[in-house]
């Protein structure tokens, strides 16, 4: 299983070092709605979960994604 930072880096096609908790949706060009769709699928595949639509639209930062994954009993 990949780390959360690795999933982010691969989905957004960015450097893993730039995946920090404060990184927010639309704060960089690479995190737009197209990349968000890719990210959702990658999170689901990697952590073997099915994300709820309300969670998908609430994933507004790396920290928020981490908090949402915790609801699915995933420590990432």
């Amino acid at each position: 299983m990949k780390s959360l930072a690795e999933v982010f880096a691969e989905s957004l096609m960015i450097d893993a070092a730039s995946v920090v908790d404060s990184l927010a949706y639309q704060s960089i060009k690479e995190w737009d709605s197209v990349a968000h769709m890719v990210l959702v699928t990658a999170l689901e595949d990697n952590f073997d979960i099915m994300l709820d639509a309300d969670d998908i639209v609430a994933m507004s930062s790396v920290a928020k994604v981490r908090a949402i994954l915790a609801k699915y009993d995933i420590t990432a």
Binding site: Y25, Q26, D32, S33, H36, M37, V40, D54, I56, V57, A58, S60
Partner: peptide
């Protein structure tokens, strides 16, 4: 807001 954001909905 983009379609994948809560603000959109």
């Amino acid at each position: 807001h983009g379609v994948m954001q809560a603000g959109f909905w």
